[in-house]
């Protein structure tokens, strides 16, 4: 059980790290949304699953089960809320007429 949760948390941290690197490296606002919208959702989801599993490691008592269910609730909430926030910010960018970065402009 411990090993599975360690694997989950490490994978989540890896995706968090790629999301952050993408946030720093990508050239414009829309492409940064790609990195954060996906990497953050999966990173949080995997880390929270790992924590919920670890929380059950010493016996399935009622309290521990309740806490694990709560952690899974947070995970599901983030799973729905993160893409929605991504849409909202992207739409704000479109409405503010932020120009998308394209490859041709950079080669000129």
């Amino acid at each position: 059980m411990d090993i599975i949760s360690i694997i989950f948390i490490l994978a989540g941290t890896f995706f968090f790290a790629t999301a952050t690197l993408g946030l720093l490296r990508f050239p414009d606002f829309y492409t940064r949304m790609h990195a954060t919208g996906k990497g953050d959702t999966l990173g949080a989801f995997l880390s929270l699953i790992g924590l919920a599993l670890y929380n059950l490691h010493d016996g399935m008592s009622f309290d521990a089960l309740l806490v694990s269910i709560k952690i899974m609730f947070i995970a599901i909430f983030m799973f729905v809320a993160n893409p929605t926030a991504t849409h909202a910010i992207t739409k704000a960018g479109l409405d503010c007429k932020v120009e998308p970065w394209t490859k041709k402009e950079s080669s000129q």
Binding site: F14, F15, T18, A19, L21, G22, R25, F26, D28, Y30, T31, H34, A35, K38, G39, T41, L42, P100, W101, T102, K103
Partner: peptide, 24 residues
């Protein structure tokens, strides 16, 4: 699909030349 997406983004981020060509 999400796991595939994340591996795709991770490969793009870790690639030094960053082969992207975004468009709407």
């Amino acid at each position: 699909q999400i796991v595939l997406a994340n591996i795709h983004v991770a490969s793009l981020v870790l690639n030094p030349r960053m082969p992207i060509d975004p468009k709407m």
